[in-house]
């Protein structure tokens, strides 16, 4: 899989670290911490370009086809 980092361009996914569902990432209540929609389709998720610029990214990806639909900086 390849993700296009807004700062660094297209890179192999091994440069990135997956964090999880973007919808629940910001909260620390019970539902945010533990419950997931876990859809078999489009999924907004947080990745960090950990071996690159270390930016936090919000990636929309189809988790059934692995098609990457969009990548933008998270928290903007």
């Amino acid at each position: 899989m390849r993700l296009t980092c807004p700062h660094c361009g297209p890179r192999d996914s091994r440069e990135f670290k997956y964090f999880g569902d973007a919808k629940t990432a910001r909260g620390d209540d019970f539902a945010s911490t533990y419950l997931r929609d876990n859809p078999a389709g489009e999924h907004a998720e947080i990745w960090q370009h950990i071996s690159g610029c270390r930016a936090w990214l919000e990636v929309v990806r189809n988790v059934t086809t692995h098609k990457v639909i969009s990548v933008k900086e998270a928290g903007q």
């Binding site: 670290k17 964090f19 990432a25 910001r26 960090q48 950990i50 270390r54 998270a74 928290g75």
Partner: peptide
């Protein structure tokens, strides 16, 4: 990573 996440995303 936790600090960066909290600073940038949370």
């Amino acid at each position: 990573s936790h600090l960066e996440f909290c600073a940038h995303v949370r």
